[in-house]
Design a protein around this nucleic acid. Sequence first.
RNA 1: GCCGAGGUAGCUCAGUGGUAGAGCACUGCUCUGAAAAAGCAGUGGUCGAAGGUCCGAUUCCUUUCCUCGGCA
Length: 295
Amino acid sequence: MDKLIVILGPTASGKTGLSIKLAKRFNGEVVSADSRQIYRGMDIGTAKPLDLEGVNHWMLDIKNPNELYAVAEYKKDAVAAIEDIISKGKTPILAGGTGLYIKAVVDNLDIPKVEADPVLRQKIEKDLEKYGIDYVFKKLIKLDPEAAYIIDPKNPRRIIRALEVTLLTKKPFSAQRKLGCPLFNVLEIGIDTPKEELKKRIEKRVDQMIGAGLVEEVKSLINKYGKNQQAFDAIGYREIINFLDNKITLEEALEEIKIDTWHYARRQMTWFRKDKRICWIKSPTKAEKLVKKFL
RNA sequence: GCCGAGGUAGCUCAGUGGUAGAGCACUGCUCUGAAAAAGCAGUGGUCGAAGGUCCGAUUCCUUUCCUCGGCA
């Protein structure tokens, strides 16, 4: 089975630097696993790498912010990219912090082939508002009793998606989530950063983003696309939009970005902690050793 | 110095004569076409200090310290 190296970790842990380093050392190319860096023009706020140091990168700048994109599509594109890299005899390195995207590739998730249906979603959202979440949840378990065990009864998005799949396929959602056979022989490397250090790095990075012109970036993006794009529901963007709308001060926006980024990092750590295959490393040299042995 | 308002969780504030709550923060968790999204749970306070009344005070009374306004 073809080999795939995965670099993951919370935001601001140094994934970008490490993946470029490994790519240069092992004749590799990087496939980004970041749900926001796929958008063109969202550079500063997503900490998109400026200098790729000659390493070929995939899955960056592939969509405009007014286009929708989701896991299933990501999985398809990322797997194609990895296969392309392998066919050239090079080493694929999947690097990023979007846990679900990584899982989709590594565990070959068989995601129900039902696209998001905005009209249906809106309709369910209206029911949600009108009759409450319990009503909508009951409606779901009537169609898919098993869903009661796997869907969070209080999470609107999970319920909406389960209903969407069940209604459009006329088959229960609970029976359609499958793990496929692994596509690649995977080495997962996680960057282990002490919490206090990570917190400091996040704060520093947010301050640097403002210095680098995040406000200008957001301004020009909303000029071009308007502010109601799904892509802009991203840390650093929604807060600056609130600042530009005079809802909060720049200082408050900065504070919020720092806190939201920290919350995000914590969610990432919770997500990755579950995956027992991950080799956690404290230094880049350790990563090189692991990769060398693996290859 | 005088007058007024206030001191309750890390922060902003509710509240009651029967030893206290909310939001945010903090910690843990969930996740299969929105995932930087969307949700769930938990920890946490000798109620500024000291006296007094009362079976019982964070709540009432007195004194005291601190903060913020106004007047001198």
